[in-house]
């Protein structure tokens, strides 16, 4: 009990009336830094690449980065919403994999209805995750690790471990990728639109405020009559929906789907993009619009590494250092806070 109080009173300096040493001014500086850091990180990376090798910033470069950022963005937005309530969804990249396979299977026969059906299935998977987490009160990390395993099997079984090419109605979904606006494919702009919607949800609605309240202090939220159970279920449903949209983006780009193809490794980039976008892993802090910059940054790192003259082998190493540096720069530190 003691450490709960300690955590509550000290680890969330930007809320709840606890003023950190240094007073209100420092408080505001920290808040402003949080809002701006993801954008600054992305812009400074653009500048460095632009100076070293301007070729990468031409239309072709922009379309490559935004295209590879699109599926990461959807997964990251869902993850950010779940991280915001202080939980995690390790299964959301697997949801997008299952979604992509179902799109490839259903689109030829069902057309647009197939896409709607796939999104309904991914939302249903999210709801199931949410119900399990909220009703049984188990740690979300372990539970969604379990559903991750189930979904991997589901992806392998539904696709029969094969790559599924879309035979008919391909134009319905390929247009999302081939149509481009300001050099970026439509899938990316849909991601930006979804980010705006999520931002509106979080900052303008009672539901969104309830989510953030749960993330900041779940017990206090419960005691203040915030309906935590339905809100958690809705949050996981949103994560499922985002996973389904990522699946659409994958199929739109690849024209096919398989359990090991394009998009099968979205889990870690998705988490990284949410974190680089300023989302706190301990909950109560996210800004979906900044997550857009997080996803762009994550998609841009491989290109930046090439532009700086490192070999492709250095990619993982730089990626790791990058995540640590960005989170270390944006994390809030308060004396005595318990950091898990």
């Amino acid at each position: 009990m003691m450490n709960k109080i300690q955590t509550i009173s000290s680890s969330q300096p930007s809320f709840g009336g606890v003023i950190p040493p240094g007073g209100l001014t420092r408080h505001r500086v920290v808040a402003a830094w949080h809002a701006l850091a993801p954008v600054l990180v992305f812009v400074s990376m653009l500048l460095i690449v632009g100076i070293l090798n301007p070729n990468y910033l031409k239309p072709l470069g922009i379309s490559i980065v935004t295209a590879s950022a699109a599926p990461i963005l959807f997964v990251a937005l869902g993850q950010a919403m779940v991280l915001n309530i202080g939980s995690i969804d390790l299964s959301n990249a697997a949801i997008s994999m299952v979604g992509a396979i179902l799109v490839a299977l259903w689109l030829p026969g069902m057309g647009v209805m197939g896409i709607v059906a796939v999104l309904a299935v991914t939302v249903a998977i999210g709801i199931l995750n949410g119900l399990l987490v909220a009703v049984t009160q188990v740690p979300s990390f372990a539970l969604t690790l379990g559903t991750l395993g189930l979904l991997q099997t589901a992806a392998l079984v539904t696709s029969d471990s094969q790559t599924i090419y879309i035979s008919e109605n391909r134009e319905l979904i390929a247009a999302l990728y081939s149509t481009s606006l300001l050099f970026a494919p439509l899938t990316f702009w849909i991601g930006v639109f979804v980010a705006l919607v999520y931002w509106g949800l979080l900052s303008l609605t009672r539901l969104g405020l309830g989510m953030t309240a749960i993330g900041k202090n779940e017990r206090a939220a419960t005691l203040s009559a915030v309906p935590t159970l339905p809100i958690k279920v809705i949050t996981y449903a949103i994560s499922g929906l985002s996973g389904g949209l990522a699946g659409l983006a994958i199929v739109a780009q690849a024209g096919s789907a398989s359990a090991s193809g394009l998009g099968s490794n979205l889990l870690l980039p998705g988490i990284a993009a949410a974190l680089v976008g300023g989302t706190s892993i301990s909950g109560g802090q996210t800004n979906p619009i900044n997550v857009v910059f997080g996803a762009l940054t994550v998609a841009f790192v491989p290109i930046a590494i090439q532009a700086m003259g490192f070999g492709a082998e250095a990619q993982s190493l730089v990626y790791g250092l990058f995540i640590i540096t960005v989170v270390a720069l944006t994390t809030s530190r308060v004396r005595g806070a318990v950091i898990k």
């Binding site: 892993i281 301990s282 082998e313 990619q315 640590i324």
Partner: peptide, 21 residues
Amino acid sequence: KVPSFVATLGTWYVGLGIGIM
């Protein structure tokens, strides 16, 4: 004071990168 989740996630990539290099 970076949460262990992030610190070790980064170290995962760093270690993998050392192996690849």
